[in-house]
């Protein structure tokens, strides 16, 4: 069966990776990538379309390309990336436009995959050791990014109820570490520093970046509806994460932590967003068994993901960034995709 896929957030780490993974699949005929920024990695046959933050153009694209699957990777889960306002615009308004496009009359969309985050569970002292997908968070969200993700998930549930003919899959990813991904936590560890709240040594859980892409690919090709946690097996104390990565612990006071974190944030010494400070106090664990039962195999445990990250980080420190820079050139990309002079081997 030939398929036509739309990937949102093509210029982000996950969108680009996902498009690359989909390009390898011969069953997928057309891949359209949407983003506000240009792709940052080389792509073979993905068609890039520039959009505004709130994706108002989306309905037209869906109608014109007749895609049957939308992979929505463009949910911002790292609040240090942008202002709260853009975050709301991208996460909430962007998703609303996407769902509106997918539920239009006579729509071609039959499958929707959304990449959310385990941030929706929050991190509090009232939490269970493992969150199953059905278990709600213990305390109401305090941070903007968590609120926006919860809103998005609410809209998505309504969409799934109203559109039973669409296979809707929601993936909640644990904290990601890997060879290339840059998050606040990876940045700390990369610089050999591990901020820790005195008196707390929370248990954290990680998922390796390759497992993230593989999980997205798995649900996109296997049509598994529902909500799934995606996280490596096991949890490990933050002190152990620091030890594996060779990072030194930087103690933060257990009281008035926010007050101390403020200037550290402000002066750009370390990024300490509030949702990550909660994590450093109470940790978080999500039950990953449901996706395994659906047939997905992880390649890394939580500790394995940390170790893999530590190895990549050591290499980076020794030889610098080993990847050549890639810049998207509209004319060049258009030439390779559309010029009659290029001989295209059949897929």
């Amino acid at each position: 069966m030939s398929r036509r896929v739309l990937v949102t957030g093509l210029g982000t780490f996950w969108g680009g990776r996902m498009a690359q993974a989909l390009e390898r699949d011969p069953d997928i005929d057309i891949i359209v990538g949407l983003d506000t920024t240009e792709p940052t990695i080389p792509l073979e046959r993905t068609e890039y379309v520039r959009a505004d933050q709130s994706y108002s153009i989306l309905a037209r694209i869906v109608k014109a390309t007749q895609v049957d699957t939308i992979v929505h990777t463009f949910l911002v889960v790292d609040s240090t990336r942008m202002s709260g306002r853009s975050l709301h615009e991208i996460n909430v308004i962007g998703t609303m436009n996407l769902l509106a496009a997918a539920s239009a009359a006579d729509t071609s969309v039959r499958q929707l995959v959304v990449k959310s985050s385990s941030l929706v569970y929050g991190s509090s002292y009232l939490d269970p050791v493992w969150f199953r997908e059905e278990v709600g968070r213990s305390r109401p969200p305090r941070t903007r990014v968590e609120r926006s993700l919860l809103e998005v998930e609410g809209y998505l549930r309504d969409f799934a109820d109203d559109n039973p003919h669409v296979v809707v899959t929601l993936l909640r990813f644990a904290n990601v570490l890997g060879t290339d991904i840059v998050t606040p936590i990876s940045t700390w560890l990369d610089r050999g520093l591990a901020p820790a709240i005195l008196g707390f040594d929370p248990l954290l859980q990680f998922v390796e970046e390759d497992d993230v892409v593989r999980a997205l690919e798995f649900v996109a090709t296997n049509q598994v509806p529902g909500t799934y946690n995606v996280a490596g097996d096991g949890r490990l104390p933050w002190s152990e994460v620091a030890a594996i990565s060779g990072a030194r612990t930087v103690p933060l006071p257990p009281v008035l932590t926010g007050l101390v974190a403020g200037p550290i944030n402000r002066f750009g010494i370390l990024d300490l967003p509030p949702e990550v400070l909660d994590l450093l106090r109470y940790g978080r664990g999500v039950d990953n068994r449901r996706l395994k039962e659906a047939g997905f195999d992880y390649r890394y445990t939580s500790a394995g993901a940390v170790e893999n990250f530590a190895r990549a980080s050591r290499l980076r420190h020794t030889v610098g960034d080993s990847r050549p820079g890639y810049r998207y050139e509209r004319d060049v990309e258009a030439f390779f995709r559309h010029s009659p002079a290029v001989t295209r081997t059949p897929q």
């Binding site: 050791v129 097996d233 152990e240 030890a243 594996i244 664990g285 940390v306």
Partner: peptide, 10 residues
């Protein structure tokens, strides 16, 4: 591969 260093369990 599960390169744990401490014996702290789940």
């Amino acid at each position: 591969r599960d390169p744990r260093r401490s014996d702290v369990d789940e």
